[in-house]
Simulated assay, not measured.
Amino acid sequence: MSIPQDIEWTPEQVARFWDYQSHRPSATANYFSVSHGMPVAKRTLSCVAKHKSARILDFGCGTGNFLKFISQLRPDILLHGADFSHESIRIAQKTCASIEPLPDLRTLNRVPTSWASESFDAVFSLEVVEHLANPALEAMLTEIHRLLKNGGYVVITTPNDEDLEQLHTCCPNCGRTFHIWQHVRSWSRNSLIEFMSLHGFALVSANSTELRPLRMRVLLWAARAVGLIKSKPPRILAIFRKQTSTVTDTTQ
């Protein structure tokens, strides 16, 4: 029996996967931005959007829920969103229809995008980096670096040291294996910091964390402290700042 091989995700396959997920009513609750977007916004906006009318891009905005949370906390911020899934952007336009001014939402076919260089004060990329293998990840980070103003910030969340095998399955038609949420790589705090530094971003903060309500976080912290829970905090929440030096070319 041959060893099953993982799917090698093409941009078209990724877009098709998320086009499908965006239409599943039961999948909505599984979107990270729905369940954890507000805590991320509350913890980071004061750091990355310090002045009124700051321009923020949600790179990989999905169905637009995180942009809506930002608008509730900071109605002065100018919002933008981008995603490779056309259907996700179509739904995001409905999600964000009550925001004034309306966010600039764009379906991406490739990078670089059509936004001008140094357009944004901050870029959020929530639960995206675990979905991208090289060179797609390097292309995204190069584009984020281009889009940020000098000294601008990028906020990244990703699962903390995820065991990808636990959620792997096999397609009965083609025999290829894949993660049920299309994850292709696992990150630790250190590996994320190292990768970002290679692409022109300096560390501001990076922590393994819980994004649940405060009382639950305290209980989980206490349980880990006394050994009742062995698992690590499930998320990495990291903020990086654009360095003004040239991005390292890792393709040579």
Rank of each mutant, 00 (worst) to 15 (best):
P103V: 02
A29G: 08
L67Q: 10
N173I: 10
L108S: 09
Y31R: 10
L57S: 01
E127S: 00
A222F: 09
M140W: 04
I89M: 01
K242G: 05
E118S: 11
S191V: 12
S119A: 10
L203I: 14
L167N: 13
I236C: 08
L73T: 10
R235K: 03
P172A: 09
I56H: 02
S53V: 15
T10Y: 14
S33N: 07
A222C: 10
W221C: 01
D104F: 15
C174F: 06
L219D: 05
D161I: 09
F201Q: 01
N65Q: 11
F201K: 09
F240N: 07
I56C: 04
E143K: 12
A222E: 04
S125H: 06
S46T: 09
A133L: 12
A54M: 10
T107D: 11
A206Y: 10
C170E: 09
L79C: 09
A223N: 03
A225W: 08
D249Y: 00
N150S: 15
R241V: 15
P101G: 11
L148S: 05
L137V: 07
D19T: 06
G60K: 02
A139R: 08
L198C: 14
S186Y: 13
S88L: 07
H80L: 03
E12Q: 12
R110V: 08
P213T: 09
R55Y: 03
D249Q: 00
S85W: 05
T28W: 13
Q93N: 07
A136T: 14
E165M: 15
P103T: 13
Q243F: 00
D76Q: 15
Q13C: 00
V111L: 09
H183A: 15
L126Y: 03
I7Q: 02
R212E: 07
S22T: 02
E210R: 08
V14N: 08
R189N: 15
H80I: 07
H183S: 14
L102S: 11
M38K: 07
P25K: 02
S197D: 05
S208E: 13
T248P: 00
D76R: 12
V40D: 00
I77N: 07
P172V: 03
T158N: 03
S231H: 09
F201W: 06
G81A: 01
R176I: 06
L126I: 15
E194K: 11
E100V: 07
H51P: 08
T250M: 03
P213S: 13
V226T: 13
N160I: 10
G151F: 08
G60N: 05
A122K: 01
S88H: 04
T95Q: 04
R106F: 06
M1L: 11
R185T: 15
E162D: 11
R215Q: 09
P213E: 09
Q21S: 03
C174D: 13
R212T: 10
C174T: 15
L237S: 02
P172K: 08
L198I: 05
L45I: 14
D249S: 00
V14T: 05
K94W: 03
R215N: 02
H86N: 11
P39G: 00
N30I: 04
V111H: 04
S85L: 05
E210W: 11
N160C: 12
G151Q: 02
H51N: 08
A82T: 00
D6E: 15
R215I: 04
S46I: 07
L105D: 08
L137M: 05
S197A: 04
L132W: 08
F84D: 06
A139G: 04
L237F: 01
W9Y: 03
I180H: 14
T157R: 12
S208D: 15
E130T: 09
